[in-house]
């Protein structure tokens, strides 16, 4: 597709469609619970409202408190733009872009944790500590998953890595990546996005002190990150790139919807795991990715 049209199209997908996902998840949860639930577009209303609201900043916070969410948002958007979007392709593709993507997400994590620690609040310190610690295990799983794709496709560039399906290890990789998706986006069973002020949370507790436009940036960034991981998961599992454009787009959209609904179902049907079990769950995800990697390796040797 023509790059002059494609770039705004990709940008529009990431910026405008991302807030749909949390809405869909909430609808699914409401449906399972037999409630009517908030409208699917609730997050859009929230964002519009927050963008117009005033800001209350802690007396302790430095300018980094406002800069943190801004940098994190840019980092997630930049990471998203590196990811190929089915037939729309990626904005920019070069050897090693996948590593840049991982480290842009790390930059977002650094800034979110930094902004959380600005306030000197015990709760936010706790959230930041958990976020950066669990990321150690999640990072191992993600790097392994990416290595698997790299071994499978014999390439180090996202647009080539994500074209074929992940081969015979697909199921393992899908489960592993889905677990990482839940952890990285702070969904049940790792975290509960519905509770506030609870001692067992990670992400929500880090953003307790944000308000107004910075909170809008945090919420929108979180939605983009969820979409990013869903798109990554779907393209790693399905051979989207090998289908004709229309079918590829359809498969991508359907896949993201399936992932979103699955997140909602997990959230409705499961409880949050005991806190000390979280590392075990993440290690399991890592091991699943390792097995997928071994299969890809064997497949490549044969």
């Amino acid at each position: 597709m023509n790059s002059i049209i494609a770039f705004p199209a990709r940008l529009a997908v990431w910026l405008l469609l991302a807030p749909l996902l949390p809405g869909i998840i909430n609808k699914v949860k409401a449906w399972v619970a037999g409630r009517r639930g908030p409208p699917v577009l609730q997050l859009y209303y929230d964002l519009a409202r927050l963008w117009r609201k005033g800001v209350v900043v802690s007396t302790l916070a430095s300018p980094g408190f406002i800069a943190g969410p801004a940098v994190a948002w840019v980092a997630v958007l930049a990471a998203a733009l590196l990811l190929p979007l089915g037939p729309l392709g990626a904005s920019l593709s070069f050897r090693g872009d996948v590593i840049l993507l991982l480290y842009l997400l790390a930059l977002a994590r650094f800034c979110t944790a930094w902004a959380a620690l600005e306030t000197g609040s015990a709760f936010e310190g706790m959230g930041a500590a958990r976020e950066v610690s669990f990321a150690v295990l999640a990072e191992a799983a993600v790097v392994t998953a990416v290595l698997t794709l790299s071994l499978q496709s014999r390439s180090v560039s996202l647009s080539a890595m994500l074209v074929p399906a992940a081969g015979s290890g697909t199921l393992l990789l899908a489960v592993g990546l889905f677990t990482v998706l839940l952890a990285e986006n702070c969904r049940v069973p790792f975290d509960d996005p519905n509770t506030h002020l609870e001692l067992t949370m990670i992400h929500e507790v880090m953003v307790l002190d944000h308000s107004g436009p910075p909170l809008a940036a945090v919420l929108h960034g979180a939605a983009m990150k969820l979409l990013l991981f869903s798109v990554l998961l779907v393209q790693a599992v399905l051979p989207v790139g090998k289908l004709p454009p229309a079918a590829g787009a359809g498969a991508l959209v359907a896949g993201v919807l399936v992932v979103t609904v699955a997140v909602g179902l997990v959230e409705s049907l499961m409880a949050r795991v005991a806190f000390r079990r979280v590392p075990l769950l993440l290690t399991t995800a890592f091991l699943l990715c390792v097995f997928a990697l071994l299969i890809a390796w064997k497949g490549g040797a044969a």
Binding site: V55, V57, S58, T59, T119, S121
Partner: peptide
């Protein structure tokens, strides 16, 4: 522009 106010950190 929206109005920036300083307050104590919200410690639940």
């Amino acid at each position: 522009a929206n109005g920036l106010r300083r307050a104590l950190t919200w410690d639940c």
